[in-house]
C-alpha cells in the first residue's frame, strides 16, 4: 500500500504538498520526496533561512514517513524464491544425508549398568 488510493492518497498528497512549501519557505535545499514508495518518505535537511533568505546557521533534519504499517519496512530481512526447475528432473543419485543418518537419532548414551541407589 503506497497511500495511492482513497483518503490515504489525499492525506499523503497534502502532507507532501505542505512539506514542500515549508522546506521552500525556510530555504532547505536538500529535500527528498519518495512519493511512490512504501512508506512514502519526505526528508529534508540543511540550514534554516529567515524570511529575508539569510542563513541562520541553525541546522535541521526532518524525516516524515507515511504507511499503513511502518513496521513492515523492517520485516523483510530474509526472503527467498525458488527457481523454476525442469519438471521432475531425472535423478540417478543425489547426496542425501538421510542415507547415512537414521530417522531417529542413533547415538544415545546407554544407561549405566549399575545405577546408584
Amino acid at each position: 500500500m503506497t497511500c495511492s488510493t482513497g483518503l490515504s492518497k489525499k492525506f499523503a498528497d497534502e502532507v507532501v504538498s505542505r512539506m514542500k512549501k515549508l522546506t521552500a519557505k525556510y530555504g532547505l535545499e536538500d529535500v527528498v520526496v519518495e512519493r511512490d514508495h512504501d512508506p512514502v518518505v519526505i526528508a529534508a535537511r540543511g540550514c534554516l533561512k529567515d524570511a529575508d533568505g539569510k542563513d541562520s546557521k541553525e541546522r535541521i533534519e526532518i524525516l516524515v514517513q507515511l504507511s499503513a504499517d511502518l513496521a513492515q519496512a523492517d520485516k523483510a530481512s530474509l526472503v527467498a524464491a525458488e527457481v523454476t526447475m525442469d519438471a521432475a528432473p531425472e535423478v540417478y543419485r543425489a547426496y542425501d544425508l538421510s542415507d547415512v543418518v537414521a530417522e531417529e537419532t542413533v547415538a544415545r548414551a546407554s544407561e549405566p549398568v549399575d545405577k546408584p541407589c
Partner: peptide, 9 residues
Amino acid sequence: SVDHWEWER
C-alpha cells in the same frame, strides 16, 4: 542447476 536464491540482511 540453480535451485533457489535467498538473501538475509
